[in-house]
Write a protein that binds this DNA or RNA. Structure first.
Lengths: 207, 207
DNA sequence: TTAGGTTTTAAACAATTGTTTAATTGTGTT
DNA sequence: AACACAATTAAACAATTGTTTAAAACCTAA
């Protein structure tokens, strides 16, 4: 299939923005990556900032919608968490720079998330939070604030990908080695998080 | 005490670099923060890059030396881990932007860590890794690669601070609320990680 | 074919960047 | 006081930035 000019620019922008961040790249760099003139980028997207906003929002939408999809499934809560973690590892294996990209932008410009509030509400409205609270009141899940639950899950999924350069140099290993460690790490993350959230269920507490 | 010009520049650079990153700030911004002329910054540090390198290395040294200090103590291994996590939370409470700062720079310029290899070796030479391996062979610690152990610890310490802007917007809470969640989260991190690393020791497995 | 429009380009714009120059101020020594 | 040297500044430099302009190339329909 042939890609139109607009899509070519979006693809190039995604590549460059994610790799170098907003401030650390130039309009001309994006144009070059897309194989065209600088002016044409602005002809389609008015400005570097507007182009960035579009890319950022599309990345966030993909990310959040994948989460919501898991939450809306009719799996038991415990399996939702497991699936969420496994999916996250899969996704991040192919897009390891996305967490950094998102967090950087949010700290650079906290308002950038405003247009995404509707998508964010889909998470709340999916009912996962209520589901968790119910399990907690039944004693089937460790009682703790859901902010902590979110943190436990995302910490153990996202950080290992974000910290790749640091880990490689600390342990003196290369890219391939580290990727192998990451696939192993997925099972640890699943076992540990589930084991902590559901301390009464010993079916998969110990590897 | 009176601060000399050179130190004033370093302080200003630390503030600005950490807050905005290398690419997203200007030499003039640093000079203004230090209350002086742009040329004076270069008079003392030759260039923006050289100044950044100095700041980066000093931040990393503080960070790593604090780790080594824990490792060199004569606490039992389990307590070293606990102390490490607690110290990390303390440190990050007052310097929450440092992980982002470090990881960004490492991905922007992987060579920036080269001058720090000697300090990095202090971690290896502290003997923690051997200590862990010994405990594992004795069956006192869950058998797993030490890369994974490092990851488990750092994920659950650093990510919660890095993801503050994202978490605040996902759960619709403000800075104060989130800080409270972070202090609670420390106990979860300690309990979960220790419980996972030492599954046979039930003394503090369940909160 | 040609007229009217869209798409693409080269060139220019003003603003900002990191860095340097040359002059000014300050400080301490003789 | 006069000199020498360090510290500080204002001004300028060339390069790069995001953005705009005006012309060229392309397309489509009559």
């Amino acid at each position: 299939m042939i890609k139109g000019t607009e899509q070519k620019i979006k693809d190039a922008a995604l590549t460059v923005f994610i790799q170098k961040g907003f401030a650390n790249c130039t309009s001309r760099e994006i144009a070059r990556e897309a194989g065209m003139n600088v002016a044409l980028v602005n002809y389609y997207f008015r400005s570097k900032s507007k182009l960035f906003a579009i890319i950022f929002e599309s990345v966030m939408q993909d990310f959040l919608k994948s989460m919501v999809q898991v939450f809306q499934s009719n799996l038991p809560f415990r399996e939702k968490i497991r699936l969420l973690i496994e999916r996250e590892f899969e996704f991040l294996s192919q897009n390891p720079e996305i967490p950094n990209f998102v967090l950087n932008e949010l700290s650079r410009n906290p308002k950038s998330i405003e247009n995404l509030l509707p998508v964010l509400h889909m998470v709340t409205e999916s009912g996962v939070f209520d589901e968790a609270k119910k399990l907690q009141s039944q004693g089937d899940m460790r009682p703790m604030d859901l902010v902590q639950v979110t943190l436990l899950i995302m910490s153990n999924c996202q950080y290992p990908f974000m910290a790749a350069p640091l880990m490689k140099v600390i342990h003196g290993i290369d890219e391939t080695d580290y990727k192998n460690h990451l696939t192993v790490h997925k099972t640890h993350a699943v076992t540990m998080v589930l084991g902590y959230l559901f301390p009464n269920d010993h079916s998969s507490n110990h590897a």
